[in-house]
């Protein structure tokens, strides 16, 4: 069993379950399906992203339906990752009438501060079925290390 630093503050919180329930109920009313325009750059739309930390990598996924790799621009400066691009309206002709319009077009940008330093040389970015997956390998010093204790 690995020895870990105590950080789970909610473990003995009697209200933790209630808080979780409250969050879940709040989430039910959150279904607006349209990306919000919150974030650092409030002029552009913030796309939904996931940031996942595994033992060796930090994985950032982003939903970009209908885009091609030419429309997006991913850059990294030290440990700040920026995903930006433009989503074009695919309809060239503006004739015909709309019954419903929920999709959006325009420019977007997300800036993510990564939790640790990453190896900038080995970053992989895949785009498949409208989902962009960026795998950022952690630097050796940021990886968890196993320390064996010798019994004397």
């Amino acid at each position: 069993m690995a020895l870990m630093r105590w950080k789970n503050r909610d473990l003995y919180d009697p209200w933790a379950d209630f808080k979780q329930l409250q969050n879940e109920i709040n989430e039910l009313f959150d279904i607006d399906r349209v990306p919000t325009s919150k974030g650092l750059y409030d002029r552009s739309i913030a796309l939904p992203v996931d940031v996942i930390e595994t033992a060796n990598d930090i994985i950032v996924t982003c939903e970009l339906p209908g885009l091609t790799e030419k429309d997006m621009d991913v850059s990294i400066t030290s440990n700040v990752l920026t995903i930006k691009g433009t989503k074009k309206d695919e309809r060239e002709e503006k004739k015909g009438k709309f019954y419903r319009k929920e999709s959006w077009s325009g420019s977007f940008q997300r800036t993510i501060s990564l939790p640790g330093s990453v190896n900038a040389e080995n970053i992989k970015a895949d785009f498949n079925n409208g989902i962009l997956t960026i795998t950022l390998p952690k630097k050796e010093e940021a990886k968890p290390k196993q320390i064996t204790v010798n019994v004397k």
Partner: peptide, 19 residues
Amino acid sequence: CCDIYEDDGKIILKMEMPG
């Protein structure tokens, strides 16, 4: 997200389904 529009005698439904 779904767009529905009429175009040249056709009804077009466009849905964004990443993944």
